[in-house]
Amino acid sequence: MNAKQIVAAVSLALAGSAAFAIEATQLDVPVSTLTRAQVQAELAQAQRNGTWIASGEATVFADQPVASTVSRADVRADARGALSADPFNALYVGA
């Protein structure tokens, strides 16, 4: 290899790695319109009604219990009916 090829290879490597220098999405944090007292009031309300989870993650949501309108026996009967109505498809099993 001569010096030209080495310089070209190094410059291509540096140019290619420069694309990884920034984050995939640049985060612009929006400015809050609430006062500190309003935020504290919302926090206290969420703690009282059980919708606040202290996990430190912004993407964790509280699971709200939902009362089922269908009995367990009805769900089992529907599952059995669906199982008997649909024939076994051999394409789903590796051959």
Rank of each mutant, 00 (worst) to 15 (best):
D78A: 12
A8M: 08
A41C: 10
G56T: 08
A13C: 13
V66Y: 01
V93G: 05
L12S: 13
N89K: 07
A15W: 03
T59Q: 04
A18V: 02
A79Y: 01
W52A: 11
A62R: 05
A13N: 07
A82S: 07
T33A: 14
F20C: 06
I6D: 01
L91W: 05
A3M: 13
G50S: 08
Q26N: 10
A90G: 13
Q45C: 08
T69D: 06
S71I: 03
Q5L: 05
L43D: 01
A24I: 10
R36V: 10
L34E: 11
S32Q: 09
E42A: 15
A79E: 04
Q40R: 15
L91Q: 14
L27I: 09
S17Y: 12
A90C: 09
L12R: 10
A21G: 04
Q38A: 13
G50H: 05
S84R: 03
T25K: 15
A15G: 07
V60N: 06
D78F: 04
A41M: 14
A95E: 14
A46G: 08
T69S: 10
V70W: 08
V31P: 01
F61G: 00
L12C: 06
V29N: 07
A67V: 14
F20T: 09
A73M: 03
P87L: 00
L27R: 10
E57T: 11
T25P: 00
L14Y: 03
P87S: 05
S32R: 09
A9K: 06
S84L: 10
T25F: 10
A3F: 13
D28S: 13
L91H: 12
T69W: 02
A82G: 12
L83E: 00
F20K: 02
A90H: 08
V7L: 15
A44V: 09
A41S: 14
A19F: 15
A77M: 01
S68H: 05
V93Q: 07
P30G: 05
N2C: 04
D78S: 05
A41T: 15
E42I: 11
V39D: 06
N89G: 07
P65S: 04
S11G: 05
A77H: 01
N49F: 09
I53H: 08
A18D: 01
S17W: 11
Q5K: 07
A3Q: 13
T51N: 09
V29F: 15
A73L: 08
